[in-house]
Design a protein around this nucleic acid. Structure first.
Lengths: 345, 345
DNA sequence: CTGAAAGCGCTAACAA
DNA sequence: TTGTTAGCGCTTTCAG
C-alpha cells in the first residue's frame, strides 16, 4: 500500500499524476507534451486537473534519458577577465541567443573561461548539452585550437565572430562583417585627407579586433595613410586614456583616431579635449558598435552599428535547425554592417 | 549476439566498458566514481584500460536520473526589455554567479523573462535545475508574487536585491545596502547646503531603485531639502537627457542632481554642461555603481561602489551550501557599500 | 572483492 | 483512445 498514490511529500512524478487522474503514464505523457492526437478531450481535462492540483512539473532528466536530448545549449566565452560579460557586444549576443533559445524551449548554459583553460571547463568535461557555442579569443592559432577541442566532442558547434575553419565537421560560423564595417569607417575618414592615423585597440586578441584593424589598414594603405596601433586594456577607462596620452606625447597629434569601439573613441575624445583639441575640427575620431548608450558622446560619434543581438538570434536559429534536420544548412553566416553618421569625423 | 559488446559506433556506455573489461557495471561505476574501496588493484587497472581504449565518458544524464541532481542552477531575470543583460550591474552579478557555480561543477541556466510571464518560462514549467535564482522587478507586490510563484515550486530559491519576505520557506536573499549607500551619497551632497534636489531614476521598478530613492529622501527630508524625482528610460541616453532637459526647463536648476546610477549621472552632466553650467560649482551631481568605465566621467563622479559580482559569488556559495546541508544557514546576506570620492560634488 | 538486480522519471512502440 | 511494457545509463544495495 501507500506506495505510489500516497507519495510522501516528495515531488510528484508522472505516476502520481496518472494515478490521480485514473489513467496511464503514457496518457499523461501525451498530455504533458502537448500531443494533439491520441487523447480524448475529457481525459485530457482530467489529466490537466490532476497536474494542476498536484503542482506536477515534468522532470527533465527522465525525459532526457529517454530522448537522449538535453534541451540545453552551452556557451563558452573565452576571456582573460573573470568579468567575461563586461562588453556590451557580448551581453547583447548572449541576450539574443538566450531569448531565441528559450522561445524554443532550450536553455542556455553560460560559462566564462580563462584562455587556455577551456579543457578544464565543466561545460567540456561534464555538462551535457545538445550543442556548444564558442566565443573564442586569443590569436588565431589559439582560437583554432579551442574550436578543434570543442569540435572533438562530437557535438554541433557554433563559433562566433571568427573566420570559418574549413575542415571542422559539424560547425557553423556566425559573425558580422567587421572588416567591411571598418573599411567603411576608414573611407569616411579619408575625406579628411589624413596623413597619419592612430587606432586604439584592446590588448586582448579578439577576432573582431583583427578584422577591424585589417579593414582600416587596407583602406589606409591604398591611400598612403600611416596607421599606428595603440593597444591597451580596454576594460579600464584610465588605461585607455593613459595609452592615448602616451602616444600623443611621443608621436604628436595624428589626423584621425580610430577607436576599436565606442567606449575607446569616447575616452580618446576626452583626452583630445583635455588638450584643448577640437573634434572633429582638429582631429577626427571614429567609434564602432553604436550601442544605445554611446549615443551620448559629444560630439555624436560616427560609428558602425554592430549586430550582436542578431548574431545571437541567428546562432540560436541555426542550432534549432541543425538539431531538427541533422545538418547545418548554412555554415557561414556573415551579417553586413552599416555606417552611422555622427559628427566626430 | 552483437547486442551490448559490439556497440554500433554510438558513444560507449558503462555496459560496453564492463563487457570489455570482463567485469560488471557495478565495478565500472565504482572505478569511474573514484571509490577507494571495494575494487582490487588488478581489476581497477583492467577497467581503467578499457575506459581509455574506448574513450568512455560517463553519461551525465544517467547519473543525474539516479542521483536526482541536475547539476545546474537557473537564473530568471525579470526585465521588460529583451536586452535583459544591458545593465552592468546585472552582467557583473551573472559573471560572479556563473564563475563560482562552475568552479563547483554547476551550470548556470540563464533566462530573461518579461514581467508577468514568469510562469511561462521553461525554468518554472519544467523541473531542470537544483535551485532557482530570481532577479525580480516591478513594484513590491509584483515582485512578491514572483517570489511566491518560484517558492511554490519547492526548490531552493535565491532572490537578488529585494527585501526579505519572512514567510518564504526555502529562500535566501542576497543584496547590497543600496539604502545605506545612497544615504551616504545624500549626506555628502548636504555639504553643498542644497535647498532643492532632483533625482533621475529609471522608469522600471527595481528594488535597488526604491532603496536608493528611500536612502536619499530620508536624509534630505531630515534637512528640509526638496527632492523631485525624474523618471525616464535609462537604457536610452537620449531619453535621459530629454527627461532632464524637460525638468530643467520647467523647474529651473536644482542645487544637486542625484543619478540613480553612473550612466544617468554622466548624461545629466552632459545636459548641464551644454547649458554652460559647471559641475560641481553650479550643480553637484552624484552617481551610483562605480563600474570601471564610469571613471571616465568629467569631472570624476562621486559615487558608490556596487558589489554586483560579489552578490553573484555570495549567492553561488549559499546555493552550494544549501544543496549540501539541506538548509540555508543564512537567509539574508546584506553587503555594505562604500562611497567613492570623486569631484562631482 | 565482485556481480545481480532494482529502479531513478520519462517516452514511444505496440497491443488491446 | 488507452494501457502495457521495455528500456534510456547510471548508482547502489545486497547477496555471493
Amino acid at each position: 500500500m501507500a506506495k505510489q498514490g500516497e507519495q510522501k511529500r516528495s515531488r510528484p512524478t508522472i505516476h502520481g499524476v496518472a494515478a490521480r487522474a485514473g489513467v496511464s503514464t503514457a496518457t499523461v505523457s501525451k498530455v504533458v507534451n502537448g500531443k494533439k492526437t491520441g487523447v480524448s478531450a475529457e481525459t485530457r481535462r482530467r489529466v490537466e486537473a490532476a497536474i494542476r492540483e498536484m503542482g506536477y512539473r515534468p522532470n527533465r532528466i527522465g525525459r532526457n534519458l529517454r530522448t537522449q536530448r538535453h534541451g540545453a545549449v552551452g556557451l563558452a566565452i573565452v576571456d582573460p577577465s573573470p568579468r567575461f560579460l563586461a562588453d556590451p557586444f557580448t551581453t547583447n549576443l548572449v541576450a539574443g541567443l538566450s531569448n531565441h533559445l528559450s522561445k524554443n524551449d532550450f536553455g542556455l548554459l553560460l560559462y566564462g573561461v580563462l584562455p587556455g583553460r577551456l579543457a578544464e571547463c565543466s561545460l567540456i568535461r561534464i555538462s551535457q548539452v545538445d550543442a556548444i557555442c564558442l566565443n573564442p579569443s586569443g590569436d588565431r592559432a589559439e582560437r583554432i585550437e579551442s574550436m578543434r577541442l570543442v569540435a572533438g566532442l562530437g557535438q554541433p558547434l557554433v563559433v562566433f565572430q571568427d573566420q570559418p575553419v574549413p575542415d571542422l565537421p559539424d560547425a557553423c560560423f556566425v559573425r558580422q562583417d567587421d572588416h567591411g564595417g571598418s573599411a567603411a569607417i576608414a573611407r569616411e575618414l579619408l575625406r579628411r585627407n589624413p596623413r597619419r592615423a592612430a587606432m586604439v585597440i584592446t590588448d586582448i586578441q579578439w577576432p573582431a579586433v583583427e578584422n577591424r584593424v585589417a579593414g582600416v589598414s587596407e583602406v589606409f594603405a591604398d591611400h598612403n595613410v600611416t596607421l599606428d596601433l595603440i593597444p591597451c586594456d580596454e576594460t579600464s577607462a584610465v588605461a585607455i586614456t593613459d595609452a592615448t596620452t602616451r602616444y600623443l606625447d611621443r608621436n604628436g597629434i595624428p589626423d584621425v583616431i580610430v577607436g576599436q569601439n565606442d567606449q575607446i573613441a569616447i575616452a580618446a575624445i576626452q583626452v583630445l579635449r583635455s588638450r584643448g583639441l577640437r573634434v572633429p575640427e582638429d582631429v577626427a575620431v571614429s567609434g564602432f558598435n553604436a550601442f544605445p548608450f554611446t549615443g551620448l558622446a559629444v560630439p555624436p560619434l560616427t560609428t558602425v552599428k554592430s549586430r550582436a543581438y542578431e548574431i545571437g538570434v541567428t546562432a540560436a536559429g541555426a542550432i534549432i535547425e541543425r538539431l531538427e534536420s541533422g545538418i547545418f544548412s548554412e555554415t557561414d553566416h556573415l551579417l553586413p554592417l552599416e555606417l552611422v553618421h555622427g559628427q566626430s569625423i
